[in-house]
Design a protein around this nucleic acid. Structure first.
Length: 426
RNA sequence: GUGGCUGUAGCUCAAUUGGCAGAGCGCUGGACUGUGGAUCCAGCUGUUGCGGGUUCAAUCCCCGUCAGCCACCCCA
């Protein structure tokens, strides 16, 4: 019988991967709560209409998984969370206490060609602050991202948060005569700047309809690392970032634009310092989105971080956690069929005391059982043979320290608890 | 969606101009019948991604297809 293959662009979560995913979730949860954010989630299925005018055109028309339901209505597997968030806020706008601070971690789907750092099914951390439009709120989200970097031990040398502002770019472009419909094309041009060689990029810029002077002007904008000082929003933003104590991670980058149409002000991206991977997180200010889904005018700012790229960056920098495969701290071995019952009873008495204990369910050779404990990273083994049973004792073996002692059974619990303090794994 | 590279044991990879499909790691057993990681010995593991074609003969050449990766596009 042939094994049915998995769906393209999906991943299987074996216990090791599941452990990593849960570890990541734990870090995300901890940072989010530290800043006072509440966990929520939206449905995984949404009506296509929700995304129609608000997300990028590409995201909806080409990248969304859309299926007709039995009545023929187009149902979408959510490609992002922000429109759902905007709807949920719009629906309860009179009951919520603002500022609303919400976060979420869940699956999303995009129909794209899978590559490194990009899958069709992925998990994403979303965190948003709604109801405030001051730059200090933007800075808080930047601080959340940087605090997360710190919590997973990524340094400011390894990752950066690069910031820009749409309004600043709009006015800078307007100053060189680019306005209206030409702005979108120019934004895409800016996105390409880092990927293309200089003459190539200039030629491409001319093809999109820019004059020689405009290309020069655009170059000047992109090379001016002091440009942010002309933006009151960004000046206040950077002051607040300093107050939050995360300046080391945050820098101005005029080439950061973001593709999504709903961003209106500050935008930012998390990147690894070498620029080896695609953006590990992206977000910004969206002041019209709630109104666009039929709610009142509620400004918002937030970001999303996918699990795939952060996983690659953690791995590259040696910051993946040491995770144990087995949840049990103790393996109670089974010496022979005669001692099996006593072993089971001991394992249960450990559980009753709150210790995760695994009972080896067959009288296999002792070396095999100990190898099993070793392979799963179970630190302690209890050995209960005829000698121990006769004397009312038990042997406790510490697989890490390579030592063992035969002790009174009454002392077993105490000894185990003592040895489990300060375990090296998470 | 377009173009390119790759696909061999559970994992990492070999295999001469087309000529019997191999190694390391891992796994199983033993050396060691009540003690794991080291060492040594032995053993197991294959529809060479899948389907077709050319050939006396295909892992190798050709076509198709699927998957991974790279670029474009876009983005977490």
């Amino acid at each position: 019988m042939k094994i049915t293959s998995s769906v393209k662009g999906t991943r299987d979560y074996y216990p090791a991967e599941m452990g990593l995913r849960n570890w990541l979730y734990g870090k995300i949860r901890s940072v989010s709560r530290k800043f006072g954010y509440q966990e929520f989630d939206g449905p995984f299925l949404e009506n296509l209409e929700l995304y129609a005018a608000k997300s990028g055109e590409e995201l909806v028309k080409k990248q969304a998984f859309v299926f007709p339901d039995k009545s023929g209505d187009p149902i979408t597997l959510r490609p992002e969370l922000t429109p759902s968030l905007a709807r949920m806020v719009a629906q309860r706008i009179h009951q919520l206490s603002f500022p609303v601070r919400w976060w979420s971690f869940g699956p999303f789907w995009r129909y794209e060609t899978p590559q490194k750092g990009r899958t069709r099914e992925f998990f994403q951390w979303n965190i948003d602050l709604l109801g405030m439009e001051n730059p200090q709120a933007d800075a808080e989200l930047a601080a959340v991202a940087c605090e997360f970097f710190r919590d997973v031990a990524l340094t400011a040398r390894e990752v950066k948060l690069q910031v820009n502002n749409r309004r600043l770019m709009d006015s800078a472009l307007e100053a060189i005569g680019i306005r209206g419909e030409a702005v979108g094309g120019t934004f895409r041009l800016i996105d390409k700047k880092e990927k293309m060689k200089q003459p190539e990029w200039e030629a491409h810029a001319r093809e999109t309809g820019l004059t020689v002077d405009q290309v020069k002007g655009l170059m000047k904008i992109l090379n001016d690392l002091e440009l942010w000082k002309q933006s009151r929003e960004l000046v206040e933003f950077f002051d607040a970032v300093q107050a939050f104590g995360v300046s080391e991670y945050v820098e101005y980058n005029p080439a950061v634009i973001r593709g999504l149409d709903y961003y209106t002000g500050t935008v930012f991206e998390g990147r690894d310092a070498d620029g080896e991977f695609r953006a590990l997180l992206g977000g910004g200010r969206y002041d019209n989105l709630v109104a666009d889904v039929g709610g009142g005018k509620i400004p918002g700012v937030g970001f999303a971080m996918g699990d795939v790229v952060i996983g690659l960056i953690l791995k590259k920098n040696g910051k993946e956690p040491m995770l144990r495969i087995a949840p049990a701290d103790v393996l109670v071995t089974t010496f022979s069929a005669q001692e099996a019952t006593a072993s089971m009873e001991i394992s249960q008495s450990l559980r009753a005391a709150g210790i995760a204990a695994e009972w080896y369910p067959a009288p296999d050779r002792l070396p095999k059982q100990l190898k099993y404990a070793d392979a799963l990273g179970i630190r302690l083994a209890v050995i209960l043979g005829p000698d121990e049973i006769r004397q009312g004792k038990a042997t406790l073996k510490d697989l890490i320290r390579r030592e063992q002692a035969t002790i009174e059974r009454a002392d077993l619990l105490k000894e185990i608890s003592k040895r489990l303090v300060g375990s090296p794994c998470e």
